[in-house]
Amino acid sequence: MSAPVESPMHTQHLLADPYDKPLLTVKFRAVVSRDQLAAAVDLGLSTYNGGDRHPDTWTVAEVRYHAESQILAGSGRELQEGAEAMAEMARPDFYDPWTRERVQAVYRAVDRAFPGAGGIS
């Protein structure tokens, strides 16, 4: 199975403390769904950087960085649960229109950062 979109690999310094001497850079590939990307980006940007900004204002660089950071740092189960929640909240009949619009904006941010990964919800 191959992924339709490749993300530029960023060096993430999540596993070593700043005072540690880096020994090795390990590269890996993760095949993720559009919903999983949206969940990773939402968690990263809403929690750490940009939570007070609308997702339509998030830059491509921010979206890519936080997607990769959360995929690397999080668990597969957490990512899948987040993906299922994002997909549910993006549905046109979701009961809370404010949440639905915000989640759909997260998907738009993902689509900007990873063209070809899917379409607008």
Rank of each mutant, 00 (worst) to 15 (best):
A16Y: 00
L24Q: 13
L23D: 08
S33R: 11
V110N: 05
Q36P: 02
L15K: 00
T47G: 07
T59W: 00
A90M: 03
T57M: 08
A73M: 03
A113L: 11
T59E: 08
F94M: 01
V32Q: 10
R100Y: 05
L79T: 14
L43I: 09
R91D: 04
Y65Q: 04
A38K: 07
L45G: 10
E84S: 13
V106K: 01
D17M: 06
A73F: 10
A73E: 02
V60W: 01
E88S: 15
P115T: 03
L15F: 08
E88R: 15
A67H: 04
Y48A: 06
V31Y: 06
L23H: 04
A67N: 02
A90H: 03
A117R: 05
N49L: 00
V103T: 15
K21M: 03
G44L: 13
F28S: 07
V31W: 09
T59R: 02
A3E: 10
A109W: 06
A90W: 04
L79R: 14
S46E: 00
A30G: 14
P115W: 10
A38N: 07
R34S: 04
D56S: 13
A16K: 00
G118R: 07
D56C: 01
Y65K: 00
Q36N: 08
L37E: 07
G76Y: 05
M9T: 14
T11M: 00
V26D: 03
T99I: 15
A61T: 10
R29K: 11
A90F: 07
V63P: 05
D42Q: 12
P92S: 06
T11Y: 02
R100H: 11
V106N: 13
E78V: 06
